[in-house]
């Protein structure tokens, strides 16, 4: 039943032995040792498991791992470099965008994707982050963080 599936995770090649229909979420968390991506609902409603797959924002609980074969997968673990946080991480930290932190990895990935492709959400940040539920902040500080991230980036901060 299990199959060998290879993909690039945050720039590194990984190979997992997995049932092809297993959600990518579990392949990341359990087989690829990347538990930063979180389970929240398992049915694509909460966005806690959001990752970037070949430059597309996906809910990894809904993506069969076989779909990641040969793909580029980006998760929260890959954003910061050795001595600097990604602009969106830095902004969430400064602005109070993270409280309990469980939605944060997915929220930040959605934020990063939005800054790369702002044209995909004509309604701006509230629209871009609509698929990511946060129960702590009321979103106010998350909006502040996204503004701050743009400032950090335009000042030459890390983030791509």
């Amino acid at each position: 039943m299990k199959q060998t599936i290879s993909f690039t995770l945050n720039g590194n090649s990984v190979t997992v032995e997995s049932h092809p229909m297993q959600p990518l979420l579990y392949a990341l968390r359990e087989d690829a040792d990347a538990p930063g991506t979180k389970y929240g609902c398992g049915e694509g409603e909460c966005g806690a498991c959001t990752v970037i797959l070949n430059d597309e924002l996906v809910m990894s609980c809904l993506v069969p791992v076989v779909q990641a074969e040969g793909a580029r997968v980006e998760t929260i673990e890959g954003l910061a470099n050795a001595d600097e946080l990604h602009a969106v991480q830095q902004a969430f930290l400064e602005s109070g965008g993270a409280q309990c932190g469980i939605c944060t990895p997915g929220m930040i990935m959605a934020g990063v994707h939005h800054l790369r492709h702002p044209e995909r959400a004509p309604g701006g940040v509230p629209e871009a982050l609509e698929g990511n539920l946060c129960r702590c902040t009321g979103y106010t500080r998350i909006f502040t963080a996204m503004k701050r991230a743009k400032e950090i980036l335009s000042a030459g901060g890390t983030g791509s």
């Binding site: 968390r29 990347a34 538990p35 930063g36 991506t37 979180k38 389970y39 998760t75 929260i76 673990e77 954003l79 910061a80 946080l85 991480q89 830095q90 969430f92 930290l93 400064e94 109070g96 993270a98 932190g101 469980i102 944060t104 990895p105 930040i108």
Partner: peptide, 18 residues
């Protein structure tokens, strides 16, 4: 700043399922 903030924004914070 939140003392555990870096762990939370980098995905290093460990919840029970982790």
């Amino acid at each position: 700043l939140r003392k555990e903030g870096i762990d939370k924004v980098t995905g290093r914070a460990r919840y029970v399922d982790d």
